[in-house]
Simulated assay, not measured.
Amino acid sequence: MIKPIISVSIFLLASVAGEAMAINCSVSNGYSRVAGDGDVLKTTLKGKTACKLTGNDWEWQEYHDADGTLIDWKKGSDLVDGTSPVGTWSATDGNGAQVTYTYGAQSYTYEVWKTKLGLYDFCTGAIAKVRGASLLDGQDSCD
């Protein structure tokens, strides 16, 4: 039988270790926040296609148009499944900069962090909700 003090210790250790493993978006982990004086975040995303690879397939390829339209590349100029607007994007400026994506009635707001590998994580607090996205100049396929 485990003594109460030992079981509490195990629980606390597991809780702290689990929380530490969940923390991704912080300077202490080698990340740099895409924020700062002026429109740093807007400038980083505007005119770029964000690419998110999952396994061997592109989970999404979304272009950040300068007018705030978010455009899904899909299959480019394909007549059946071609590029089309899927929502909007906007970013705040300053040290607390965040990007908000709106798809119909659903909105998602993130802080953006650049990783040591030059990829981008989209985070809510210290938790990466989207990991390892790359940014391409212009509107293009991520392939």
Rank of each mutant, 00 (worst) to 15 (best):
Y103S: 06
V130L: 13
P4H: 04
H64P: 06
A35R: 03
T100W: 09
I6F: 15
G30W: 09
A50C: 03
C51W: 01
V40Y: 03
V80K: 10
K46R: 10
V80F: 09
T49G: 00
Y108H: 07
I127T: 14
V27M: 08
P85M: 08
G118N: 02
I127V: 15
Q106D: 15
S107F: 05
A91I: 02
W73K: 01
W73A: 01
L45H: 00
S90N: 13
N24F: 11
K116A: 15
C142S: 07
Y108L: 07
S107R: 04
P4A: 07
G104V: 01
G125R: 04
D143C: 05
K42I: 06
T44V: 03
E19A: 14
I6N: 05
I2N: 11
N29A: 10
T92V: 05
Y101N: 01
S77G: 09
I6M: 10
K48P: 01
T100K: 13
M21V: 10
D93S: 15
G55K: 06
D39I: 05
Y101W: 11
I5Q: 12
C51E: 00
F122T: 00
G87S: 03
K75T: 04
S26N: 13
M1D: 15
G36N: 10
Y103C: 03
N29C: 07
Y108P: 00
M1K: 13
I5E: 14
Y31G: 00
G68M: 08
T102F: 01
A50W: 00
L12E: 08
K42F: 11
M21T: 09
G94K: 06
K116S: 15
H64E: 09
Y103V: 05
A17E: 08
T100S: 10
G47V: 01
N24H: 12
S28G: 10
T83F: 02
A97R: 02
